[in-house]
Lab assay of single mutants.
Amino acid sequence: ELIWEQYTVTLQKDSKRGFGIAVSGGRDNPHFENGETSIVISDVLPGGPADGLLQENDRVVMVNGTPMEDVLHSFAVQQLRKSGKVAAIVVKRPRK
């Protein structure tokens, strides 16, 4: 059984690379294997702001206090874009 651990990460936006993450998932883009609608970190740019803080497959729980459960992919992207220079991101990942 999976035990999820929650992490809060504060990312500083890089002028060229943004937050250095890509997200997939969302209500309109469920996971191809299990139908899960979570917003998921799909890519972490090496050397970017999120490197060492976020991991691929982290589930995004909140962005700047806005819940990311059962939202559209575009909504999640929009929340990240409009967060200015700093984003507080809450993620969960299975305990190893």
Rank of each mutant, 00 (worst) to 15 (best):
E1A: 12
E1T: 01
E1N: 15
L2R: 05
I3H: 06
W4Q: 05
W4D: 03
W4K: 04
E5T: 09
E5W: 04
Q6L: 08
Y7W: 08
Y7K: 09
Y7T: 13
T8A: 15
T8M: 08
V9S: 00
V9F: 13
V9W: 05
T10S: 12
T10D: 12
L11V: 11
L11M: 06
L11S: 01
Q12A: 09
K13R: 14
K13I: 05
K13D: 10
K13M: 09
K13W: 08
K13A: 15
K13F: 06
D14L: 04
S15Q: 15
S15M: 10
S15W: 15
K16G: 13
R17W: 14
R17F: 14
R17T: 14
G18H: 06
F19D: 01
F19N: 02
F19R: 01
F19P: 01
F19K: 01
G20M: 01
G20D: 03
G20A: 03
G20C: 05
G20Y: 00
I21S: 00
I21F: 12
I21N: 03
A22I: 13
V23A: 01
S24W: 11
S24M: 09
S24F: 02
G25N: 02
G25D: 02
G25Y: 02
G25P: 00
G26C: 01
G26H: 03
G26V: 01
G26P: 00
R27T: 14
R27H: 07
R27F: 12
D28S: 04
D28G: 10
D28K: 04
N29D: 03
N29Q: 14
N29V: 07
P30H: 04
P30V: 06
P30T: 06
H31Y: 06
H31I: 07
H31W: 06
H31A: 15
F32D: 06
F32Q: 15
F32R: 12
F32G: 08
E33C: 05
E33V: 11
E33N: 06
E33G: 07
N34M: 10
N34S: 15
N34Q: 04
N34V: 03
N34I: 06
N34R: 14
G35S: 08
G35M: 10
E36M: 08
E36C: 10
T37N: 15
T37H: 09
T37K: 14
T37F: 04
T37G: 12
S38E: 06
S38W: 14
S38C: 04
I39Q: 00
I39P: 02
I39N: 00
V40S: 04
V40K: 07
I41H: 03
S42L: 05
S42E: 07
S42I: 06
V44S: 02
L45T: 15
L45R: 05
L45A: 11
G47F: 07
G47L: 08
G47P: 02
G48C: 04
G48F: 03
G48T: 05
G48Y: 02
G48P: 00
G48W: 00
P49D: 04
P49G: 01
P49Y: 01
P49Q: 03
A50K: 01
D51A: 13
D51V: 10
D51W: 06
D51Q: 07
D51H: 10
G52S: 06
G52R: 05
L53S: 07
L54D: 00
L54C: 04
L54I: 14
Q55P: 00
Q55Y: 15
Q55W: 12
E56N: 06
E56D: 06
N57G: 12
N57K: 14
N57S: 09
D58R: 03
D58L: 00
D58G: 01
D58H: 00
R59L: 07
R59I: 15
R59T: 06
V60C: 03
V60I: 10
V60G: 02
V61H: 12
V61S: 07
V61R: 05
M62Y: 14
M62Q: 11
M62P: 00
V63K: 00
N64P: 00
N64A: 03
T66C: 08
T66G: 03
T66M: 10
T66Y: 08
P67W: 15
P67I: 08
P67N: 14
M68P: 00
E69F: 07
E69R: 11
D70K: 08
D70R: 06
D70M: 06
V71D: 03
V71E: 11
V71R: 06
L72N: 15
L72T: 14
L72G: 14
H73W: 11
H73K: 13
H73Q: 15
F75G: 02
F75M: 05
A76M: 05
A76F: 13
A76H: 01
V77F: 03
V77D: 12
V77A: 07
V77Y: 09
Q78M: 07
Q78F: 09
Q78I: 08
Q78P: 01
Q78R: 12
Q79Y: 08
Q79N: 08
L80K: 00
R81C: 14
R81K: 13
R81S: 14
K82S: 10
K82E: 15
S83A: 09
S83E: 12
S83R: 06
G84V: 09
G84K: 14
G84Y: 07
G84A: 13
G84T: 12
K85P: 11
K85M: 13
K85V: 09
K85Y: 10
V86P: 03
V86A: 10
V86R: 10
V86T: 15
A87L: 13
A87T: 12
A88L: 12
I89F: 11
I89C: 04
I89E: 02
V90R: 11
V91Q: 02
V91L: 07
K92V: 06
K92Y: 07
K92I: 05
K92D: 11
R93Y: 02
R93A: 02
P94E: 10
P94G: 12
R95K: 13
R95W: 06
R95G: 13
K96V: 13
K96C: 12
